[in-house]
Nucleic acid binder design. Structure first.
Lengths: 199, 199
DNA sequence: AAATTATCTGAACACCCGTTCACCTCAAGC
DNA sequence: GCTTGAGGTGAACGGGTGTTCAGATAATTT
């Protein structure tokens, strides 16, 4: 056998990406073999090397595209006026992204160590770019006297860590709906950086 | 050759634990071989099986002892009176533990998936025990009217995620000292659950 | 219809994996 | 000082690893 009917590079590539994302997120990069990924896409192991240079390149492709999509999605949506509304928008956006792409989010925080220095640096840079969006909102609010965080960078890291934490425990059909969780987290974030709370 | 001079089970066991902790935290459970761990302790691979039943048992041993030590350390220290001081104490305690045991903390959040169901459940149970300490403080403060978190469990998860986040970016000798970071985070935590901020 | 190119197979490569075990040596008890 | 067992070795087991590549077939171009 050889080339199946109706197979294109585009389709097979996407199937491989999907299978790899799923397996990496479930079992970890090192624990998943190229053969398992290939099988998940209904293909032989050798085929992987027509689409990716090697295993790390496959991981890098997943992380890079996830980060680029994330930034593009944020930049591409209309932003409300005023720091408070923008912060609320960011919290909702970030939680929504985490909800819709749990595997990619998990990977991008857990498997960075499996990248070589150059690839690592590129992903880190993208992550910083994204975090800077939040920092900018906080700085803007600070200047306007709406927020009072002692340190914008630390508040950025604290908020993102807090929001990412939701993915580790939230289960569909649990005690609280997504919307309710979003409201509660928004409340905590707002108070944490509020100017009224304390100087 | 066979038994080296002056070797005891106690000493070798601790060296193996230390080597495994270091390597698992750096490269991940699946990426580290038994031979690498043994080499890190200056011993052959076969020796590992005199101390641990298998690879998972070694991981479980590390996670269990870390969680038990954590809980024992918290329970063993004198607690100040009043929810606000207790919460401050918890934040300082947790950050201090994360600072002193970064590898174990990292492992206990990242490598749970490599445990079988029974071992997984035991670690999860220990983690819940620890988190319940924080929940109790928040509930106490809520009852006293000092705190106003819309949901105690969510506030617990949010605070722990926020504090754990520090380990992912803090580097010794950076812009801020540990103490300063602790103060700033304490400020954000306090405001996030403060009763004065909003109903 | 023929030639060419894109796509995939499946076997092979050298190497590493977790785990077991017969054997060996040191330390302690009689 | 001899025996006993705790502690460790190092080779071996079956099987899995990432990666390569000659060969085969489908789609496309000429």
């Amino acid at each position: 056998m050889a080339r199946p009917r109706g197979s294109t590079s585009e389709i097979t590539g996407q199937r491989l990406r999907a299978a790899a994302l799923r397996l990496f997120a479930r079992h970890g990069f090192a624990a998943v073999s190229m053969r398992q990924i290939a099988a998940g896409a209904g293909v032989q192991a050798g085929t992987l090397y027509l689409h990716f240079a090697d295993k790390e390149d496959l991981l890098f492709d997943l992380l890079r595209s996830h980060m680029e999509d994330l930034i593009a999605a944020w930049d591409g949506q209309a932003r409300p006026e005023g720091p408070l509304d923008r912060l609320r928008e960011f919290v909702g956006f970030h939680l929504g992204r985490n909800r819709d792409h749990p595997d990619a989010v998990f990977l991008s925080y857990m498997e960075l160590r499996n990248l070589g220095p150059a690839n690592f640096a590129r992903i880190e840079s993208l992550r910083r770019d994204y975090e800077d969006r939040l920092s900018a909102i906080l700085a803007e609010g600070e200047a306007a006297g709406v927020f009072a965080c002692p340190d914008v960078k630390l508040a950025t890291m604290a908020i993102i860590a807090m929001l990412n934490g939701v993915n580790t425990w939230y289960r569909e059909g649990g005690r609280l709906t997504r919307e309710r969780v979003g409201e509660i987290y928004w409340g905590m974030v707002r108070q944490a950086v509020a100017a009224s709370g304390r100087a």
